[in-house]
């Protein structure tokens, strides 16, 4: 069994000065000077608020690559920072005193998929050692991106998390919903059906052959 080796997608530098140098290095040659200046200012605000700054860097690079005009990029960056701040607040509202960066970014992702702050709080509240908040938020956001309305997405993720299994029950959800949609039901119908199944003692054997015994891949 291979050991799962996981890496943080958010590379934090050791000191703010180093972090700023890291930001400058990533932006060099990729974004216009005014965008770079905006990133530095907003990244500084983020760090002062205890929020991760890497999502700002990545969004700026994306905008520049897509040829988006600088004012629009800067507006998008402010939106990103606002989402990070709101996500952190929503997670703290769930009783998590010090949300870690990964969870905050996952919460901001859920928001970008259209989920309201109350959904982020509800999901953070449900988290357990086996089903961490970052997973719940990412999967709920993915379900929303598939077309499951936010309330049903939250209910489904909560039901799967509480079904007693480990996080795989949650990670499988987007694939299950998509399989059901491919068979002809709407996303909300698929989500509601799966939530009922989870509440009544567990989700059925997951679809998608070729995966092998679903029980044997647990790390």
């Amino acid at each position: 069994m291979k050991t799962l080796a996981l890496v943080s997608i958010l590379a934090f530098a050791g000191t703010p000065l180093a972090a700023q140098q890291g930001v400058d290095a990533q932006l060099a040659g990729r974004v216009a000077p005014d965008v770079a200046a905006a990133v530095r200012t907003l990244a500084d605000s983020a760090m002062r608020a205890g929020l991760p700054s890497d999502p700002l860097v990545q969004k700026a690079i994306e905008g520049a690559a897509k040829g988006v005009p600088a004012p629009q990029i800067i507006a998008a960056l402010e939106t990103v920072l606002g989402r990070l701040d709101q996500a952190a607040a929503a997670i703290r509202a769930a009783g998590v005193a010090q949300p870690d960066a990964e969870t905050v970014v996952a919460g901001a992702f859920a928001a970008s998929a259209g989920m309201p702050a109350s959904a982020v709080t509800a999901l953070a509240r449900v988290q357990t050692a086996k089903t961490p908040a970052a997973a719940l938020l990412r999967i709920a956001g993915t379900l929303a991106a598939i077309g499951v309305p936010s309330p049903q997405a939250v209910s489904l993720v909560v039901a799967a998390a509480r079904s007693g299994g480990d996080v795989t029950a949650v990670l499988d959800l987007p694939a299950r919903v998509e399989s059901a949609v491919a068979r002809g039901v709407t996303p909300v119908q698929a989500a509601e059906g799966l939530a009922r199944a989870a509440a009544h003692g567990g989700l059925p054997q997951s679809p998608g052959g070729g995966r092998g015994n679903s029980g044997s891949h647990r790390p």
Partner: peptide, 8 residues
């Protein structure tokens, strides 16, 4: 723990 949410 950063990618704990992907475990299998």
């Amino acid at each position: 723990s950063a990618w704990r949410w992907i475990v299998r």
